Amino acid sequence: MFATTHRVTLEDGRRVVVKAAPDETDRLLSYEHDVLRTEALVYGLADGRPELLMPTLLLADFSRTVLPGDAVVVSHLDGVPLNEAGFEAGDPRLMRVETELGAHLARQGSVTGPLFGYPSNPGLQAGTWPEAFGRIIEALLADGRRWGTALPDDEIRAAVARHAGALAEVTTPRLVHTDLWPGNLFVDPSSGALVGVIDPERAIWGDPLFDLVGADAMWHGTSAHLLAGYAAEAGAPWAVDEPAAATRLLLYRVQLALVMLVEITPRAYEGDWLVEYVHQLRAILDRALAGLA
Rank of each mutant, 00 (worst) to 15 (best):
Val17Cys: 12
Val42Thr: 09
Asn83Trp: 11
Tyr277Val: 03
Ala106Asp: 02
Ala164Arg: 10
Tyr252Ser: 11
Ile137Glu: 02
Lys19Met: 06
Val8Asp: 13
Pro119Lys: 00
Arg93Lys: 12
Arg162Thr: 13
Pro68Leu: 06
Phe210Gly: 02
Phe186Leu: 15
Pro152Lys: 01
Ala103Gln: 11
Met95Leu: 04
Asp34Gln: 12
Leu36Lys: 01
Tyr252Cys: 09
His33Met: 14
Thr25Leu: 05
Leu256Val: 04
Glu270Ala: 12
Leu82Glu: 01
Gly102Arg: 01
Gly196Trp: 02
Ala268Tyr: 00
Glu201Gly: 05
Gly127Gln: 06
Val213Lys: 02
Trp238Ala: 06
Phe62Tyr: 13
Glu138Asn: 14
Arg248Glu: 05
Trp238Cys: 07
Gly48Lys: 03
Glu201Tyr: 04
Leu59Pro: 03
Ala293Glu: 15
Ala21Phe: 08
Pro243Ile: 05
Met95Pro: 00
Gln255His: 15
Asn184Lys: 08
Ala232Lys: 11
Leu124Gln: 05
Arg96Asn: 08
Glu11Thr: 15
Asp211Ser: 06
Leu258Tyr: 03
Gly291Met: 15
Thr265Asp: 11
Val262Ser: 02
Ala106Thr: 05
Arg267Val: 13
Val73Asn: 00
Ala232His: 11
Pro68Cys: 08
Gly90Ser: 08
Leu115Cys: 04
Gly192Thr: 13
Asp153Phe: 08
Ala244Asp: 14
Asp216Cys: 11
Val160Pro: 05
Pro114His: 02
Ile264Gln: 04
Leu67Arg: 09
Gly235Lys: 10
Gly144Thr: 07
Val278Asp: 08
Ser190Leu: 10
Leu212Phe: 10
Gly165Pro: 07
Ala268Leu: 06
Ala245Met: 02
Trp238Gln: 06
Leu180Gln: 10
Leu67Asn: 02
Pro92Val: 07
Glu88Arg: 03
Tyr230Val: 12
Arg93Leu: 07
Ala161Arg: 09
Val275Glu: 15
Ala85Met: 07
Ala245Asn: 07
Ala46Lys: 10
Leu227Phe: 15
His104Met: 01
Ala239Thr: 13
Glu131Lys: 12
Asp70Arg: 02
Arg146Ala: 07
Phe133Met: 04
Val97Asp: 03
Trp219Val: 09
Ala215Trp: 01
Glu233Ile: 00
Arg162Glu: 11
Trp238Thr: 03
Leu94Asp: 00
His6Ser: 09
Gln280His: 14
Leu52His: 08
Phe210Asp: 07
Gly102Tyr: 01
Tyr230Cys: 13
Ile137Arg: 04
Val176Pro: 00
His6Ile: 05
Val262Glu: 03
Thr171Leu: 09
Asp286Met: 13
Pro173Phe: 01
Thr172Asp: 13
Leu67Gln: 08
Glu100Ile: 01
Glu32Tyr: 04
Leu140Asp: 09
Leu28Ala: 00
Ala132Asn: 14
Asp143Cys: 14
Pro68His: 05
Ala150Asp: 14
Ser190Glu: 11
Ala203Pro: 09
Arg7Thr: 12
Gly48His: 09
Asp61Gly: 02
Ala161Leu: 10
Thr265His: 15
Arg15Thr: 15
Trp205Met: 03
